[in-house]
Design a protein around this nucleic acid. Structure first.
Lengths: 187, 187
DNA sequence: ACATCCTATATGATAAGTCCTATAAGATAA
DNA sequence: TTATCTTATAGGACTTATCATATAGGATGT
């Protein structure tokens, strides 16, 4: 489970409430590790049980208690162990490829429409990443901890590159379907 | 759930037993939709309840009963509806990117080793896909239903292209880490 | 004044998938 | 002969994640 380690990762920078963790996920790793709000709270409870984080309860009189989670030394150790251990080959699930795989069962115009819809989604994603990347590039020279942000930017760079490749493939596929050119390419 | 639709997809070609479905998954879509054996049986039971498949029980005397599943007209309709409906943007989970994202918390040599391990995995995958692709290319001219196989090959082509892009990114990242060059690139 | 949104935490139900194990018999290898 | 592999189906326990909903107060807008 990476959610656990992603939470430890965020807490390794600064303590967080569950609520702020959710916002941190949505702002940064959402594209490769989305996190459900309720799952964050449940995972925090687990991490506390395991002694990897501690809970600081802040009594705010009128308002609800605020719960701030802190990384423990054991938590930092667990994070670093996980970060430096290669993961077993994962199985990505890509339902869109399942659609393409069985597209022989529907008409060309139908699969073409599905591919077009996918192209629009990917184009939006690429534009969004491009935007994020430019913003980071501008901020970068003034940053302390450039090494830390380098890794953040690496993941964005991956998002950009992989989605651009994806887009190229999608566009090529669409073209070949429209031309009724069902002959595979030499790759 | 795509497993349901992938099963309907296979059954749209020919009836299958649960056991043979598992083999079909492992031979073809395993890289983008792996299927657990017990889940296949459970999903087949569900599909039968929903009237999308029918079960033919073959009594083989000494041996265990063999259960062959057939697609119903409703099953074919469900498959075609699903195939021609664009999917909502999915959230891919990529634990490796989580590792890279938080790699600032470990030493360069440690993250470099993790990246190297990933490179090896991806190289193997690319070699495997290249092999599969060449085999298909040779078979292709003699095939009937070239259009159907075109879509199969498209997914393989995607696997090749995306993994090659991934490899390029991994190698670039490794190089920059080794050179302690933490400056982002213009993308 | 009323509605809606934001902050903030949390539970119940369900879905999807994994892992382990059980059962049963034929085929193959050492 | 014994062990392992392949064929063949299936249930139990568990994990991970999602969705809906509940509670509670503050802030903002119309």
């Amino acid at each position: 489970m990476s959610l656990k380690h992603a939470i430890l990762g965020f807490l390794s920078y600064t303590p967080f409430s569950g609520y702020d963790l959710k916002k941190a996920f949505d702002r940064s790793v959402q594209h490769f590790w989305p996190a459900d709000q309720s799952q964050i709270y449940r995972t925090l409870a687990q991490l506390e049980e395991q002694g990897l984080v501690t809970k600081e309860v802040i009594d705010r009189e009128d308002r609800l208690d605020l719960k701030i989670y802190h990384l423990t030394p054991a938590g930092l150790q667990e994070l670093q162990d996980w970060l430096s251990t290669p993961l077993p080959a994962e199985a990505t699930r890509e339902p869109f490829l399942v659609q393409v795989f069985f597209a022989g069962k529907i008409a060309d115009e139908e699969i073409a429409a599905v591919i077009e819809a996918e192209i629009h989604q990917v184009e939006e994603r690429v534009a969004e990443y491009e935007d994020m990347y430019q913003k980071w590039l501008q901020k970068f020279p003034q940053l302390e901890n450039q090494r830390e942000f380098f890794f953040t930017l690496l993941t964005l760079e991956y998002g950009l590159r992989s989605n651009k490749t994806y887009l190229t493939w999608l566009e090529g596929a669409l073209q070949r379907i429209r031309q009724k050119n069902y002959v595979p390419k030499e790759v």
